[in-house]
Design a protein around this nucleic acid. Structure first.
Lengths: 199, 199
DNA sequence: GAGATAACGTACCGATCGGTCAACAATATG
DNA sequence: CATATTGTTGACCGATCGGTACGTTATCTC
C-alpha cells in the first residue's frame, strides 16, 4: 500500500510518508489544530516545510490525513478487539476502561484523537465533521456487533441506541480524563454504564 | 458586585467589564483558546487591545476569567434547575436533552464551554484543569441532589457514581453534538442513559 | 484652579504564522 | 549523453501573533 510504483521518474522522496504522518498525527492529537504550528510539525518529523506541503498539501489537509490515519489505525484496532470472539460484557468493560487506563496508568493526557477532533475542528468544518462521524459510526457498529453476543439482549430496535450509548459514555470519559478527572470518578462512570447491560 | 467603589481617582472605564467578559467568553467558547486571537476579542468587545490587557491581564487570564464566568453563570443556572423542586426523572432527562436542544433546535454548535475547556486547555494546564474539575464537581453535586428525590433510589454509596455517570453522558453528548451527531443518535443515548434510573 | 491617578488611543515591538518560490539535486527514460 | 520529472533546500512573502510603551484625556482629591 505504500510503494505502488517502486520506480518513478523524478528524485525519490527521502523520508517515509507514513512515518511522517504518524508524527504529524501525534502533534495534532496532543495540541489540537490551532495549537499546532507548521514549525511543530517540521520539528516532529524532521522534514522541511516545503516538503511537507509537497506531500500533504496544506495544514488542514495534514490534519485531515492525520485524522483518517488515526481512524484506520487506532480506531480500527479497537473495533477489531470489540468484534473479536469473547464475552461481550468483558469487551465493553475493557472499552470503557481505555480512557482511565491511558490517562492514569500510561500517563497519556492526549485522550482520543477522534474525540478531540469532535470537540475541535468538526464543529465548524463540514468535511472534518463527516470524517469524525464516520469514525464514530465505525466504533458504534463494532459495539453493536459485540452486543450481539450479550447474555441479556436489548430489544432488537434498541441495539443501535445501546451501541451509541456506549460510544457516548466512552467519549465523555475521554473528555473528562483529558480534563484531569480522577480514576475513581472514571471507574464509577464505567461501572454505572455497565449496569445498563448487566443482568 | 460590579462597582464596589462608585468613584475612584482616575479616568473612569468607558466599557462594562462584565459585558466585555461575556463577549470574550462567547468567542473562546466558539473557537477555543488557540483558535481565538486578540484581534477576535477586540472585534467582539469593541474594546482596544491595551484596555483589555489593562482590565484582564493577558490572553490566558482572559480565558480563565471567561471560564470562571461561564461556571458562575451558565453552569450555576443549570445546577439551580437540577436542585429545584420537581420530578428527578424529568430534571435528569431535561439535563441530558440540553446538548441536542442547543445543537439542533437552536442551531448552536458551540456545545458547552466547560466540556470544550476539558478537551482544550485543561489537559496540559493544571490551573485550568482545576477550574474545569471544579465546574464538573458543581454539576455532579447538583445531579446528586436531584437524585435524592428519585423513586428508585440507587444504593447509598452509588449516588455519587450515578451523578458522575450523568455528568459523563452529558459531556459525551456535548462533544458528539459539537461534532455533528444527529438528533436521533443523541436522543437514543439520552433515553438509554435514563434507563439506569428508571424503575 | 493644581496635582494625582487611571483609562484611552495609537503606534510599535520582535516573533511567529501559514504558505510559496526558484535554484538545485537526484532519479527516471531515451 | 540529453531531457523530463520530482524532491530538497533555504530564502522569502505579507499577515498576523501576543504584548507593550507612551502621549493624551478624563476624572478624582485637595
Amino acid at each position: 500500500m505504500s510503494q505502488p510504483s517502486p520506480s518513478q521518474p523524478g528524485r525519490p522522496r527521502e523520508f517515509n510518508e507514513d512515518e511522517a504522518l504518524d508524527r504529524i498525527l501525534s502533534v495534532f492529537w496532543e495540541k489540537g489544530y490551532d495549537g499546532t504550528s507548521l514549525a511543530d510539525l517540521v520539528d516532529a518529523t524532521g522534514v522541511r516545510k516545503a516538503s511537507l506541503y509537497k506531500s500533504f498539501g496544506n495544514k488542514r489537509q495534514m490534519y485531515i490525513k492525520a485524522l483518517e490515519a488515526y481512524e484506520s489505525r487506532a480506531i480500527d484496532q479497537v473495533c477489531d478487539e470489540l468484534e473479536r470472539d469473547g464475552a461481550a460484557l468483558k469487551k465493553l468493560d475493557w472499552f470503557l476502561s481505555l480512557p482511565g487506563q491511558a490517562r492514569w496508568q500510561e500517563g497519556d493526557a492526549r485522550g482520543c484523537f477522534l474525540c478531540n477532533a469532535s470537540a475541535d475542528q468538526a464543529a465548524f468544518d463540514p468535511e472534518i465533521s463527516k470524517i469524525v462521524r464516520n469514525g464514530q459510526t465505525k466504533l458504534s457498529s463494532a459495539i453493536e456487533l459485540a452486543l450481539g453476543s450479550l447474555p441479556k439482549q436489548p430489544r432488537q430496535d434498541a441495539t443501535k441506541a445501546t451501541a451509541d450509548f456506549f460510544l457516548g459514555v466512552y467519549t465523555g470519559l475521554r473528555i473528562l480524563a483529558r480534563g484531569g478527572a480522577d480514576i475513581a470518578t472514571l471507574d464509577g462512570i464505567r461501572m454505572q454504564a455497565m449496569t445498563t447491560v448487566r443482568v
